[in-house]
Design a protein around this nucleic acid. Structure first.
Lengths: 222, 222
DNA sequence: GTCTATATCCTGATAGAC
DNA sequence: GTCTATCAGGATATAGAC
């Protein structure tokens, strides 16, 4: 698969360019992306690309904001109504996994972007995060703190817990190609079924994080 | 910091080039790295670089193998002697975090590399993994399976557990710059102390994964 | 082995016709 | 608004002197 078919079903050419740029940037990063390829995929030529957006960097910034917003608004939904804590955790895990499953290039893009100092990505991200009044991380910390205060969960530093959950959910997708390779090497008998593995992934993360690994002998509270 | 000082303390120029290339590639990825910068950092010129290695790609492949080997041999050490399972898990978590803390660019490089199809990285990696008789993932799966068979831990699919642990350990370092930014935004009162946060990170991951989040009321087995 | 100088190609951006 | 043609800079790689 050299280069995919051009985009034809978008309303304006501007939108076509943005969508094409999304694909290319997210897949290859800033320095790997070629404006020529973006133009090809958008079904126009480079000149028009410079007519709408002045430079490659301008498009890139728009893409960054778009990607970040997509990701955080999806997570935002998961924490809206007032559910019991166990459900919040479960919902959070499921939403993160499902969102990334639907757009598997997003976390790679974000990681790749942030790692290398990430041009102005850091600024854009913090702006997006802090946008809607009380930010997503802030609300998450508050929810955890409330459970801690009520002594309904084990002592834990909220940011640490959030990082543990996010890492558990996201890591798999970032390294999926090699995970699959190693898996089929370790368990050659059981073929790798992606859909099933991801479904199992969500349950597994929740169980490990909520109930832990250690056997609960003599416990009657579950 | 534009470009760091050249390397002068290596034995051969070939080694100098490789070390410089390691830095640059790991920091900027394949398409972001410039042979000029590698040469500068190695304290030689581009022509010599092509004299030792025929092309940019040849150097890159050598770096990939070096990075993967470094990472996996470090993990290998952690699982050598026969410890109780709780100690294996703890040791594994601590080793992963410490190894990455010492070489923070490695996971970014690996992720970035694997994500974009990763040229021939996938092949190199699987070769490195399957090298030493019984591979690291294989041994880890065996250890977990043994505990499951003895019913000493909760039911869990070993690969899923490994992914959860790895993600918990690695994710933070990949997104560290922005984690710090968000943290200081969420908790402006408590300043971010990196060393302390990483130490706490290891303990927190172990506690959550081994004991879980949910309070163990009426349990006397710990 | 090591360098300077140069070839060759590629990329982002622009000029200008329509 | 959209295109073709082209520029100017930068990248990898090579030639050839020492």
């Amino acid at each position: 698969m050299k280069s995919r078919d051009p985009i034809v079903d978008d309303a304006t050419k501007e939108a076509r360019i943005l969508r094409a740029a999304m694909d290319i940037f997210v897949e290859k990063g800033w320095s790997g992306a070629r404006t020529q390829e973006i133009a090809d995929r958008a079904g126009i030529n480079k000149a028009l690309l410079h007519y709408y957006f002045r430079s490659k960097e301008n498009i890139y910034d728009k893409i960054i904001e778009k990607v970040f917003t997509t990701f955080f608004t999806a997570l935002d939904e998961a924490l809206k109504d007032d559910k019991p804590f166990e459900e919040v955790i479960r919902q959070f895990i499921y939403t993160v996994v499902d969102t990334i499953d639907a757009n598997p290039n997003i976390p790679r893009f974000i990681m790749h972007e942030l790692s290398q100092g990430g041009k102005n990505a850091k600024g854009i991200l913090t702006r997006v995060v802090g946008r809607s009044g009380v930010s997503l991380p802030q609300r998450m910390v508050m929810l955890i703190s409330r459970e801690l205060a009520a002594e309904r969960i084990q002592p834990v530093n909220p940011p640490q817990l959030i990082l543990t959950i996010l890492g558990s959910c996201i890591y798999y997708f970032v390294t999926e190609p090699v995970v699959e390779a190693i898996l089929s090497h370790v368990q050659p008998d059981t073929p790798y079924e992606r859909r099933q593995f991801i479904a199992e992934r969500k349950e597994s993360i929740f169980n490990v994080i909520y109930y832990g690994l250690k056997k609960r002998e003599g416990c009657f509270d579950e």
